[in-house]
Design a protein around this nucleic acid. Sequence first.
DNA 1: CTAAAACCTGACGCTAGCGTCAGAGGCAAG
DNA 2: CTTGCCTCTGACGCTAGCGTCAGGTTTTAG
Lengths: 125, 125
Amino acid sequence: MTVTVAAAERLVRIGDVARGDGVSVRAVRYYEQQGLLIAERSRSGQRLYRQDAIPLVRFFQQMFAAGLTSRRITELLPCWDSGHTDAGQRAMLRAERERIQAKIDDLQAALDHLDEVIAITDTHP
Amino acid sequence: MTVTVAAAERLVRIGDVARGDGVSVRAVRYYEQQGLLIAERSRSGQRLYRQDAIPLVRFFQQMFAAGLTSRRITELLPCWDSGHTDAGQRAMLRAERERIQAKIDDLQAALDHLDEVIAITDTHP
DNA sequence: CTAAAACCTGACGCTAGCGTCAGAGGCAAG
DNA sequence: CTTGCCTCTGACGCTAGCGTCAGGTTTTAG
């Protein structure tokens, strides 16, 4: 039987975050080391996360997949957290947007190229 | 005044290939080391490339950008060179195709996410 | 109470496509 | 002939996001 002390204390441990996102515990620790994720600590030193750490980590994964570095993500995190941005941050957002779009175009070109070859090798075995 | 000895001897040196593709000389040597590019050698040991090495290197760049390793490219090169493929190669082609498509989808999702934030931070400075 | 499972802090390893430095030879022009 | 650019072969360095082992504490299940 568990007793809920307060609604604000729904904290989870690092393994829960990791499993909730399908990433490794090591990865979550790494995010903290890079300043992406701040965790409270229990008296014994274990990391305690709020529930919203899980979607946050998912977001990190998406940005990593998009080619952003952890450094860039830390610089852009305030845009999500506070909603407030300065000119530099807006410029960075746009720059990353352009980079990703360019990458998509490159990938699409490569995909078309591959599809050509697949079509040829299929009709011409 | 240069004298053309034979049409088949239009060979270029590594610097020409590199400049022609906008890559470094080091990169071209690396491709050879990985078995992607075979070069003839002059008596003094300098690499001599046929003109078609230039579009070939461009192709390598495209495949690298698409996330293929040099190993994979060497395994798939016969599909271009000879046009002949076995079942394994066709499966690899398809697998790479799916990988690239999935990556495009991920990137598009990240782009949409970023665009949302940009829209918010623009109308809500 | 005890054993297993989960957590902790270092700290080294890994991959892949090059960058870069060192030291030595090759090649057209003036 | 020599100046200056190009090329050669090693071989170590770098980055970034973790994997992984070591050795120790903590929490949880039975």
